[in-house]
Amino acid sequence: MAAGGDHGSPDSYRSPLASRYASPEMCFVFSDRYKFRTWRQLWLWLAEAEQTLGLPITDEQIQEMKSNLENIDFKMAAEEEKRLRHDVMAHVHTFGHCCPKAAGIIHLGATSCYVGDNTDLIILRNALDLLLPKLARVISRLADFAKERASLPTLGFTHFQPAQLTTVGKRCCLWIQDLCMDLQNLKRVRDDLRFRGVKGTTGTQASFLQLFEGDDHKVEQLDKMVTEKAGFKRAFIITGQTYTRKVDIEVLSVLASLGASVHKICTDIRLLANLKEMEEPFEKQQIGSSAMPYKRNPMRSERCCSLARHLMTLVMDPLQTASVQWFERTLDDSANRRICLAEAFLTADTILNTLQNISEGLVVYPKVIERRIRQELPFMATENIIMAMVKAGGSRQDCHEKIRVLSQQAASVVKQEGGDNDLIERIQVDAYFSPIHSQLDHLLDPSSFTGRASQQVQRFLEEEVYPLLKPYESVMKVKAELCL
Rank of each mutant, 00 (worst) to 15 (best):
Y13M: 14
Y13C: 14
Y13P: 13
L17G: 08
A22F: 07
S23K: 13
S31I: 00
R37S: 11
W45R: 04
A47T: 04
A49I: 05
E50Q: 07
Q51Y: 07
T58A: 12
K66V: 09
N71C: 11
I72F: 12
K75T: 14
A78K: 10
L84K: 11
L84T: 05
A90L: 00
H91W: 06
P100G: 07
K101Y: 09
G109Y: 01
A110T: 10
S112T: 01
D117R: 00
N118F: 00
A127I: 02
L130G: 08
A136T: 15
D144C: 15
R149Y: 09
R149T: 12
R149I: 03
S151Q: 12
H159V: 01
Q164Y: 04
V168F: 06
K170H: 08
R171S: 00
C180N: 11
L186Q: 07
R190M: 13
R190Y: 08
R194T: 06
R194A: 07
R196S: 13
R196A: 13
Q210P: 10
H217L: 10
R234D: 10
A235W: 13
D248W: 03
I249W: 04
E250A: 12
V251C: 10
H263A: 11
T267A: 11
T267H: 10
A273W: 04
E277H: 05
E283F: 08
Q286I: 03
M299P: 10
M299T: 09
S306T: 01
A308Q: 04
L314C: 13
L319I: 13
Q320W: 09
T321N: 11
A322V: 15
Q325T: 09
W326L: 13
E328R: 02
R329P: 00
D333E: 04
S334T: 14
S334R: 04
T347E: 07
T347W: 04
T347C: 14
N357I: 08
G361T: 13
G361H: 13
Y365L: 09
L377G: 03
F379H: 08
M380F: 08
M380P: 00
A392L: 07
G393N: 09
G394T: 08
C399A: 15
I403P: 02
Q408C: 13
A411T: 12
S412F: 15
V413L: 09
K415I: 07
E417Q: 14
E417M: 12
G418W: 04
G419T: 08
D422Y: 09
E425F: 13
R426I: 04
Q439G: 09
L443P: 01
G451C: 02
S454D: 14
Q456G: 06
V457R: 04
Q458H: 13
L461G: 03
E462L: 15
E463D: 12
K470I: 08
V475S: 14
